[in-house]
């Protein structure tokens, strides 16, 4: 790791101010992704701001019947929270389908949203990568692309967002609450939080410099039956090839997809269609595949079909 200085922040705004005051600073929560990348010198912060002691570790009902999830609630605790298990089961299911027990014990809600891609060329510092080094090119396009994106891709990047949790958050219309160095707060709809790669794949979300996530807000429960079906190369502890989050109730259905794009993928207009083929066709409109990852279109339709069958059962 490159040398860095370290401080433990005592309030959310102080953390944001510290980030604004230090060039090349990073917040550290669970650290399970950041430290991995620092060891490989893909991330090289000069200053780390530990945000684990800000009291942002609670899951609470909001006045409108929704839920406020503290930014640093661990993935394990969020998946096990009684309200989440009962009313937002798709979120519990998504969380426990990701990573390992050890990692979920450390990884935080905010950190999970900010996870970086596992594209092999992002990790391989001997290869060009527009996300790691803007303007250097993309070794993934024309390379080993089996697990990479088919939706919303650009000529600069075909990386996927690796999170399962974020797929459920997208389905649930979560909002990401933040504070900036001036103490100004805002709530960013999850649909606008993650960005497509476009020609700036190194910019992955809507956060401004120094802006700190303080919580994630969920609207009141949808009801219905909740599913998270993840297809991967191993039975456990692997990133998704394709995943389908679904909440299906009386007269409504919502879907969001992982493993397809640079962000959790959701096409609201597709939710008016019926059946896996029609929904899948609407979700996958405009897909741009490589010979190695074109299996994902059929896999998406079939995984969706399996979820719909399970919902009818």
């Amino acid at each position: 790791m490159k040398p860095f200085t370290y401080e433990r922040a005592t309030s959310a705004q102080a953390a944001a101010q510290a980030a604004a005051a230090h060039p090349n600073a990073k917040f550290i929560g669970g650290g399970t992704n950041l430290l991995d990348l620092m060891k490989l010198q893909i991330e090289t912060p000069a200053h780390l701001i530990d945000v684990n002691h800000l009291g942002l570790d609670k899951v609470e009902r909001t006045e409108d019947g929704g839920l406020r999830i503290g930014a640093h609630v661990r993935n394990t605790d969020l998946a096990a929270d009684k309200i989440v298990r009962k009313d937002y089961a798709v979120l519990s299911r998504a969380l426990v389908s990701g990573a390992s027990g050890q990692l979920r014990n450390k990884a935080t809600t905010a950190g999970n949203l900010l996870q970086r891609t596992r594209c092999p060329y992002f990790y391989d510092t001997s290869k060009p990568c527009n996300k790691r080094k803007p303007g250097s090119g993309c070794a993934a396009i024309g390379g080993f692309s089996r697990n990479l994106a088919i939706m919303g891709v650009s000529d600069a990047c075909i990386a996927t967002h690796p999170s399962d949790m974020a797929v459920a958050m997208r389905l649930l219309d979560a909002r990401v609450e933040t504070i900036n160095p001036h103490g100004i707060t805002r709530a960013i709809p999850i649909a606008e939080f993650h960005r497509l790669a476009g020609d700036t794949p190194h910019i992955e979300n809507a956060l401004q410099p120094g802006e700190l996530i303080t919580s994630v807000l969920l609207p009141k429960p949808l009801g219905g039956r909740h599913f998270y079906r993840k297809v991967r190369d191993r039975a456990s502890y692997a990133f998704a090839n394709v995943s389908v989050a679904a909440v299906i109730g009386d007269g409504f259905q919502h879907f969001a997809f992982g493993g397809l794009a640079h962000k959790p993928w959701r096409v609201e207009s597709a939710e008016r269609e019926q059946g896996a083929d029609a929904i899948g066709a609407a979700v996958l409109a405009g897909a741009k595949t490589t010979p190695q990852n074109d299996y994902k279109t059929m896999l998406t339709r079939r995984t969706l079909g399996a979820v719909l069958r399970e919902a009818r059962a």
Binding site: G31, T32, L35, D36, T76, L103, N105, K106
Partner: peptide, 9 residues
């Protein structure tokens, strides 16, 4: 809680 001690400072 069990954690990976390699991924924490």
């Amino acid at each position: 809680r069990r954690i990976n001690s390699c991924l924490t400072l």
